[in-house]
Amino acid sequence: MTTTKTLYLLCSAAPPVFDVARVIEDAQARGWDVCLGLTPTAAHWVSGSLDGLAALTGHPVRWQYKFPGEADVWPAADALLFAPATFNSLNSWALGLTDGFAVGVAAEAVGKEGVPVVAMPCLNSALSLHPQFDQSLAVLRGAGVTVLYGEGGFAPGPAGPDAPPHFPWRTALDAVTNGR
């Protein structure tokens, strides 16, 4: 199947990142050419799978910025999905703190006209009560990011469990496929 649309899939270090190969396959079945970007901790978590993920996507998996003057190894994005997006990644993104590759790419995408940007948070209910979190979601939404949180998106569980009982990957892929 020939794909014509490029999806930047950015992932933070949260348990749903371990499903990323299946998510890439689902996105490819929808016609997306997927480029995978990770936070450094997410890259560490899936380090044993990086070569396989690169083979699956046909693109290098990135978690670090390229050097100045180096060619970009990814095609231009037609859409961006940041999922799972952790408390730290979302707050950094909203505050414009782009010292990490994944957050930097997401921050830049907000300024690119015609590129839908979708975020699916993944955090526990204790972190969701931090006052900066609501402010960060408001900033991102105000910048045009579709944030799938709460009803119709990710709903946090209690602090403590290692993995949410269900991460709505399909909802996230539906949102980028439908251009939200």
Rank of each mutant, 00 (worst) to 15 (best):
V110L: 15
L80S: 03
Q64Y: 07
A102M: 08
P15T: 06
Q64A: 13
W45G: 04
L148G: 10
G157L: 11
A102P: 07
S12N: 11
G48V: 05
P168Y: 03
L53V: 00
N178W: 04
P116I: 01
F82A: 13
V103L: 03
V17I: 12
V20M: 12
N88E: 11
A79S: 04
G37N: 04
H44R: 12
L50G: 03
T57N: 02
T98H: 08
L137R: 10
A163V: 09
D78T: 02
V23E: 08
C35K: 02
S92R: 15
R30H: 00
A119S: 15
T6V: 15
T86A: 09
T86L: 11
R180L: 14
S12C: 15
W63R: 08
H44A: 11
Q64F: 07
V17K: 00
V105G: 03
P158M: 07
V73Q: 13
G31P: 00
H166W: 07
F18S: 12
A94P: 14
D33Y: 02
F82V: 14
T171F: 05
A94V: 06
E151Y: 08
L140K: 00
R62H: 11
R180I: 12
P121S: 05
P161R: 00
G114P: 04
G104E: 09
S136Y: 08
L140F: 01
D26H: 03
Q135D: 12
D162R: 14
T2E: 11
L95H: 12
P15A: 12
D72R: 11
V110K: 11
T98D: 14
P84H: 05
L123C: 07
P16G: 07
G111D: 06
K66M: 12
V34A: 01
V23Y: 04
T3E: 10
V23M: 06
D51I: 07
V34N: 00
A14S: 14
G114D: 03
L97D: 10
A85P: 03
W169N: 02
A143S: 15
T3M: 13
